[in-house]
Simulated scan of single mutants.
Amino acid sequence: MGALRTTLLSWTTALLLAATLAPAHAESSITIPDDPCSSEQPSPALHRAISLSPHLTELIYAAGAGHYIVATVSSSDYPEPAKTIARIGDGITLHPERLLHYQPDSILAWLPGSTLNALQPTLTRLDIALLYSKPLRLRDIPQEIRRLGWLFNTRDIACPVAQQLDDRLDALAQRAPTDNTPVSIYLELGHDPIYTIGNDPLIHDVLATCHAQNSYAHSMVAAPQVLPEELLRRNPDVVILSQSSPLTQQERLHYGQQHQLPAALDNRVYGISPDLLYRPGPRLIDATEQLCGYVDRVRADRHAAAQHGKSPAKP
């Protein structure tokens, strides 16, 4: 759990820094067009990329350019072909000589770090593009795919994929809630100790898409620790666990029931893989659809209770 928390803390910190695929410096030789799918601006046609984040690996594959990744980090495990790519570490500790060994024409990273900052002059001299990707909204994900399609000259694949994701987001946005009472979500990241996601823009956008809200949205800590009595006081409608193991899910459900947590007593404890929910790649839209389904169940139960003259669980 310690490794997961470290990853999530780094992730939420990165999301507060900046958004979308962008050059490391304004003077970069690569300027990505605002509308990559219709732009006539010539593509740099990159073909030897190093991906320093699992979400970027997923985005590059979605853009039809996975075969151009020459090296990546140990946590890049999706899609299946990504497991065969050469590894260069964990993405946090980087060795410049290993990066340059693969003779990349581009390095795509999640957030700046001391190694990449120090390496920038060398990369500029060698004409190696350094770009960062930090989606802050769900809509940034298909747009990143479009930009990657332009960078790697795979727009014929990337643009239709991005449009399909946008269409799915449109469908989610058009789902009107049956009532205006908020549905509160508690996202459990770990249980020894118990901690959750605090004020995070991307998770906020995911929940807003589902007409829901984070029980700990007002916390200024990226991953605040949670006390059982505080969770009872907040009384979330739904509990989302950061894994989908049936055994662990049952254990956490039983724990919540022991503490008389209404969401657990009503069997509203669900598991979503952290690789889907906490990686800002295409699969986050899968997780959003899944989460919206759980929110819809709450609203359906409220509607059924109202139809039968029963008081809903929350005012």
Rank of each mutant, 00 (worst) to 15 (best):
R125I: 08
V221F: 08
E97T: 14
A173Q: 09
P262Q: 00
D205H: 11
L241T: 03
P104K: 01
D200G: 00
L119T: 10
V226R: 05
H308C: 10
G149R: 02
V239Y: 13
Y102F: 15
P54I: 03
I88L: 15
Q225A: 10
R139A: 12
W150A: 12
I285R: 01
L123E: 04
R98Q: 10
Q143H: 11
L284W: 12
I128M: 12
H95V: 06
P54M: 05
R252S: 03
D296A: 15
L4F: 11
Q243M: 11
P44C: 01
L151Q: 02
P282I: 04
L207M: 08
F152L: 04
Y195R: 02
T124M: 03
L227S: 10
V183P: 04
R175Q: 15
L247K: 12
L291K: 04
T31F: 05
D200M: 02
T209S: 08
D167V: 09
I88C: 02
R299M: 07
I240F: 05
G293N: 06
N235T: 09
L123H: 06
H211G: 14
L232A: 14
C159H: 09
N214P: 14
L46N: 01
A129G: 06
S38Q: 14
A264K: 03
A45P: 05
P182T: 11
R168L: 03
D35W: 09
L253M: 04
H47V: 02
I85E: 05
G64T: 04
H254L: 11
E289K: 12
N267R: 08
H204E: 11
S38Y: 00
L131F: 10
H101A: 14
Q225Y: 13
R137H: 07
I145R: 00
C159W: 03
C210R: 12
A14N: 08
